[in-house]
Amino acid sequence: MTRVERIRSALEAALAPQSLDVVDDSARHAGHAGARDGRGHFNVDIVSDAFAGMSPIARHRAVYAALGEMMTTDIHALAIRARTPAEAQA
């Protein structure tokens, strides 16, 4: 399973998103100090009811928690756009 597939699977299991887009941006950061150890750069756009009533920081923490150990073993940088379905439609 690729890193993108593992990220997608972990987020789907934990947050039941209505919409989820995961992009591996690692190639754009080749040679970057954080990429030298093999960890990657990713962008996540996630829409889930689970974010209702959460602050932006709490939403990011929920994503980090869902990814668990991957945050230290596979992911160097993670850009997150986390919205509720109502926010996504606005």
Rank of each mutant, 00 (worst) to 15 (best):
R83M: 15
A66S: 05
D21C: 12
L11N: 01
S55R: 07
A90V: 10
A13F: 06
L11D: 06
A62V: 00
D25G: 04
N43R: 15
R6Y: 05
S9R: 06
P56G: 08
V47N: 01
A16D: 15
H76T: 03
F51P: 07
D45H: 08
M54E: 12
A14E: 03
M54Q: 15
D37L: 14
A35G: 10
V22G: 02
A16F: 10
I7L: 11
E12G: 08
L20K: 00
R59N: 02
R39E: 09
T72V: 14
S9N: 12
E69T: 10
A33M: 03
G34M: 09
F42H: 14
M54F: 03
A82T: 00
A35P: 00
V22K: 01
H60N: 11
G68W: 05
R36N: 15
E12P: 01
I80E: 06
D24G: 11
A50V: 00
D21G: 09
P56T: 05
A82W: 02
R81V: 15
A86H: 06
M1I: 06
P56N: 06
R59D: 03
D74K: 12
H60F: 10
A33S: 14
R39F: 02
M70Q: 05
A52M: 08
A35I: 06
M1S: 14
T73L: 15
G34A: 06
S9P: 07
A16V: 03
D74S: 13
R81Q: 10
